[in-house]
Amino acid sequence: MKITMAHGSGGESTSRLIEDVFAKYFNNEFLSELSDSAVVPGSSKLAITTDSFVVTPILFPGGDIGRLSVCGTVNDLLMSGAVPKYITCGCILEEGLDMEILEKVIASMAETAKEAGVIVVTGDTKVVEKHSDVSGLIINTSGVGFIPEGQIIPGPSKLEDGDKIIVSGNLGDHHATILGSRMGIENDIRSDNAPLVEMTRKLMDAGLIVHAMRDVTRGGLGTVLNEFVNASKCSIILNETDLPVSASVKDFCGILGLDPMYMGNEGKMVISVSAKDAEKALLLIKESKYGENAKIIGEVKKEKESSDNTNVIVTTKIGGKRVVGPMYGEGLPRIC
């Protein structure tokens, strides 16, 4: 069965779609009310975020757009020091979308939400006319998280001299998966889309001095670190040999002329942690789900006086120094 324009009409077809698919998987006391808004218990300090997901293909090795939409929003809340609680699910379905695929995506969202400890409390569905050969879907998720009392919020402007930079695992997996699917390159690379609940909570609860925390998404590690150096007016020096990249992703990049520094992830984070807490932080991340390949990859240099020296610098394998600027363009494969 396929999605038709009728499913978006607001009438009987819409109700059936919501009952048969969305409410079936997002089964909780708030959503099952099916009222105009979900009325939920709150907190004195909230974190709110929103994100839209337009990835194609919508099903890919290691995940799907549903899982991605939960992870993306949950991780954004986590990076602000919040405990993610509620998410919304706004779907724009393209006419002709296979119902089976939709169900698979929604089931995956529900499973991922359960893993992340959040509930989908409200949503919306619209149907649009077919635009291309492949019928897809677009998902928007907004999320609300509670900021615990006394929680120090990490921020990109808070890096300090001597901080260590830790990345929670291998770079570029998600981007390599999507691009591989699109360019017909078969490999065993899987998207790393994952909710980073365990590792962030472990870090926050241990009271370690984590100055900045960001998930590594579009634009890769290079993009996040450039945001850090610009906001904190410092430099970050990385060691090329310490950057964790799987052999598969490394060669994938080699085939297409891409740089792992700019390849996106969807289940990795990078933190700037005070030097004295670095080893402990590394251990906590490595002990957490999805953190097994975490590494300390470099450190922060910040001059006492405000300086123009705000660069991300990689010390290369042969001891050279290479400046890694922000990503430009779309990161298209080079061949020539």
């Binding site: 002329g257 740089d259 990689v314 010390t315 394998k317 042969i318 001891g319 050279g320 290479r322 020539c336």
Partner: peptide, 16 residues
């Protein structure tokens, strides 16, 4: 060779 240009930058060779 453009690939040499990129490799020279990527390895930080000018700094050496």
């Amino acid at each position: 060779c453009g690939t040499h240009t990129a490799a020279i930058s990527e390895n930080g060779i000018p700094s050496l």
